[in-house]
Simulated scan of single mutants.
Amino acid sequence: MSFPTVLFTPLLVLVIIYWVVVISLGADFESGAVLGIPAPIYISLFVALAWFATLSGGEWHGPVPLWVIPIAAIVLAAVIARLLAIPLQRMLPDGPDASRADFVGLTCVIRTGRVTDAFGQAEVHAADGSSAIIQVRQAGRDELHAGTVALIYDVDPEGEFFWVLPADIARKGL
């Protein structure tokens, strides 16, 4: 509870309270990303690292003036958090791709004059009631035009579009 650690102690307490609430209530964070990982994870990592760096620096600062330690701690925490963000990006599912997969199996309404293997848009309604305009493609030569109901059967994450087929053909196949 002494300088310079006291600067980051309240932030660390807030981070701990946040994660206790998230874990105990099973809450989900839908906030933006920082360096490719969810902001709460990055901020928590940064605060914990800065707190530890000021604690360590306060004990072993030697001839360095004590006021330099918080500045060094911020720089060090930012660098280490960035280095840790790289493997975390690979371990965490991508937000947009994870939500795209939720559309597979739903029906959509075609909004363009036609759908080909290289062009088309549709409107889809998610389970939560929200709607989205998505890019769609078809593998066959079915007549998919504005107003046609189609079934989303796959997603292409690299091309950022969905594969569709007419909903009436999908029902006959079942």
Rank of each mutant, 00 (worst) to 15 (best):
Met1Asn: 09
Phe103His: 10
Val47Met: 02
Asp94Val: 08
Leu106Pro: 05
Ala78Met: 14
Thr9Ile: 08
His145Val: 14
Ser131Ala: 15
Ile23Ala: 07
Gly173Tyr: 14
Gln89Tyr: 09
Leu83Asn: 00
Leu45Ser: 06
Ser44Lys: 01
Ala127Tyr: 02
Arg114Ile: 12
Gly140Asn: 13
Ala146Val: 09
Glu123Ile: 14
Ala48Ser: 14
Ile74Val: 15
Leu144Ile: 08
Gly32Phe: 12
Phe8Ala: 03
Ile152Leu: 13
Leu55Arg: 03
Leu25Asn: 13
Glu143Asp: 13
Val22Ile: 14
Leu144Tyr: 00
Arg82Ile: 10
Pro65Cys: 08
Asp117Ala: 14
Gly36Thr: 10
Ala146Thr: 14
Gln121Leu: 12
Val68Ser: 13
Ala126Pro: 05
Pro93His: 10
Ala132Lys: 13
Ala122Arg: 02
Gly173Trp: 13
Pro10Asn: 06
Leu165Glu: 12
Arg100Phe: 08
Ala126Gly: 12
Lys172Arg: 13
Phe162Asp: 01
Ala98Gln: 13
Leu88Asp: 05
Leu106Cys: 07
Phe3Ala: 07
Thr148Pro: 02
Ala73Cys: 08
Arg82Trp: 15
Cys108Met: 13
Pro40Trp: 03
Glu158Trp: 02
Tyr18Lys: 00
Leu14Arg: 02
Ile134Ala: 09
Ala48Gly: 11
Ile17Phe: 08
Pro87Thr: 11
Val136Glu: 10
Leu12Val: 13
Ala53Cys: 11
Leu76Gly: 15
Trp67Glu: 09
Val68Glu: 04
Leu66Ser: 10
Leu55Tyr: 10
Gly159Trp: 07
Ile110Ala: 15
Ala127Asp: 13
Glu143Asn: 10
Ala50Thr: 03
Gly129Cys: 09
Leu14Val: 12
Val79Asn: 09
Pro4Glu: 12
Ala73Ile: 01
Leu76Met: 14
Ala101Phe: 11
Asp94Gln: 09
Val115Ser: 05
Val104Asn: 01
Phe8Arg: 00
Pro87Lys: 07
Gly159Pro: 04
Cys108His: 03
Tyr42Trp: 03
Val155Pro: 01
Ser24Met: 10
Leu7Lys: 06
Val149Met: 04
Val115Thr: 11
His61Ala: 05
Thr107Glu: 14
Gly173Cys: 08
Ala39Tyr: 04
Gly36Leu: 09
Leu66His: 05
Val124Leu: 15
Val47Gly: 01
Trp19Gly: 08
Thr148Arg: 01
Val20Ala: 13
Asp117Glu: 12
Arg111Trp: 01
Thr148Glu: 07
Pro70Ser: 10
Val79Lys: 05
Trp19Ser: 06
Ala150Leu: 03
Leu92Met: 14
Ile74Tyr: 01
His145Ala: 15
Glu160Val: 11
Ala72Phe: 09
Val164Ala: 13
Gly159Met: 05
Leu88Arg: 07
Leu66Ile: 15
Ala39Ile: 08
Arg111His: 05
Val155Ser: 07
Pro38Leu: 04
Tyr18Ile: 00
Ala167Tyr: 06
Val104Glu: 03
Ala27Pro: 01
Ala132Asp: 10
Val13Cys: 10
Ile16Lys: 01
Pro96Val: 11
Val34Phe: 02
Arg141Asp: 12
Gly105Leu: 07
Ala98Asp: 07
Ile134Leu: 07
Phe29Met: 14
Ile41Ala: 10
Ile23Met: 08
Val6Ile: 14
Ile69His: 04
Ile80Thr: 09
Pro40Val: 06
Asp102Thr: 15
Asp117Gly: 15
Tyr42Arg: 00
Ala53Ile: 02
Ser44Trp: 00
Asp142Met: 09
